[in-house]
Design a protein around this nucleic acid. Structure first.
Lengths: 156, 156
DNA sequence: TATTAGTAGTTCATGCCGTGAACTTCCGCA
DNA sequence: TGCGGAAGTTCACGGCATGAACTACTAATA
């Protein structure tokens, strides 16, 4: 008779705890880890990144400050428009991002270890459908335009 | 071809965002909300609560400070052992906790709205199994003893 | 009984994270 | 030329978590 809403919250807690644990082993906080993984394969502008991570621009700016201070990330300003900042990983940052991502891939699904294989598979499907709906995904060859709809961080 | 680990993390993000949103409407942060709901039906000692929420005692102490300052919660010390603090909701706190809980129950599952009914049901089952494994649940007539195993906050 | 060890909880300093408000710099346009 | 808006930043503030040191109390020991 567990309530669905309640159990979803606790599920999120379990996932976040394990994620934070793995991030910690790579000396990263969850927020830093998500930022790093978001740009590990392609640089992004601050505004894109903010939309993609669902955070305000100013919060992102400060998050980038902290990661840049550690040399994992690099701000760059294109000639064409000097207002924008394009954020890219440094070689060091890329190494860490990839190690972390691989670790998350390998070890985070452990939480579903004791589930029946098909239950596990269905969980995966459900998770994919939900995230596809709520998380704005950048296509690989993205132009940088985000679909503003379905973004959880809209203002009222 | 979404990676399972990755998609689980984003699922957690979706859930937490929605949860934070609902909590915000009741003027609570997620941490405050979880604390309040943990004791809305039965008082708990600080140490139990810390174990139940998976946080350190000192963090809990400060969290309680903030909620107590708002009059939602009350510290009490039993005669039998003056060291322990039993935490209970005030009438006001209980009212808020119940309104919040009902709201979470009703509106958080919205994130799974567009799933097929049986997929939705399976998600529920999977979530229940995972949380049962990783979240130490206090039985209703609990003696206060937590099973120390499977607690994510153990020390090495 | 007096000492000691351990338990329950708190306090403090520090750092990360997010918010709202005000700000700078720069582009585009009239 | 000058103005509106876009992209980022800065600041002050509060919530949250951690490690280390601390108080108050109980329980075990001698």
């Amino acid at each position: 008779m567990e309530d669905f809403g309640d159990v979803l919250v606790w599920l999120a807690v379990v996932i976040q705890r394990r994620y934070a644990e793995i991030c910690g082993e790579h000396d990263l906080t969850p927020a830093q880890a998500q930022l790093l993984c978001s740009i590990k394969d392609r640089p992004l502008r601050m505004a894109e990144l903010a939309g993609s991570l669902g955070m305000a621009k100013n919060a992102l700016s400060q998050l980038v400050d902290r990661i840049e201070r550690r040399g994992l990330v690099q701000r760059d300003s294109p000639e064409i428009d000097r207002r924008v900042i394009v954020l890219a990983v440094t070689p060091e940052g890329k190494k860490i991002a990839e190690a972390l991502y691989a670790d998350v891939s390998r070890r985070l699904p452990d939480i579903a270890d004791n589930l029946e294989p098909d239950l596990r598979q269905t969980l995966r499907t459900a998770a994919v459908q939900i995230t596809n709906r709520y998380i704005p995904r950048l296509a690989d060859g993205s132009t940088g335009m985000l679909t503003p709809a379905t973004n959880a961080a809209e203002k009222r």
